[in-house]
Amino acid sequence: MRVAVIVFPGSNCDRDVAEAIAQVTGKQPIMVWHRETTFFDVDLVILPGGFAYGDYLRPGAMAARSSVMRHVLDHAKAGGLVLGICNGFQVLTEIGLLPGALLPNAGMKFICKPVKLKVTRTSTPFTGSFTKGQYLDIPVAHHDGNYFAQKDELSRLEDNEQVVFRYENNPNGSINDIAGLSNVSGNVLGMMPHPERAMVHGKTRGDGYKLFNTLMEMIR
């Protein structure tokens, strides 16, 4: 599996997710600086967590307009896999690859804690080895994870079964408990929780590992 991790000024989970990919695939991903304008041929593009451009204007707003994102758009539109984690999810909504937007948490606090996620869509390359209704333990760490979509948009994405993960106990006010969302075809996933921070669980493999491993097996 060939993987690219996009690095924006202010990304801070880029190395963590690169390490996670290296653990699962045995190969280091390509780190792609946001100003890159040449094409990169990979199976999966990861938009990592962090605070790209210091969250100026809106989280993800500046990053979504950087030159590398044109390639990410082309890659996604050609059916290539895109995973946006936390800030990466915000970038995906800002660029319009995913519907809706992420607002400040309802409690106005930064939340950093383990959460339980319910898998609600398994027809994606990210979740194909999970079963519907299964719970995963993956931590969140965000200030703006309160997912919002206007009524029509919300019922459209529910009808299309685009919600991939829901919080068991909603930490941030997210509408319909949405923690992770895919596009209709399932090749683009945005999620607020950080799978790269759930690689181990005690002495066993964590649910983040399982997610990346699922991806690798789906691509192979």
């Binding site: 937007a101 607002l103 919002f148």
Partner: peptide, 8 residues
Amino acid sequence: QLLANMVI
């Protein structure tokens, strides 16, 4: 294009 996010 940039200054406002028309979704919200």
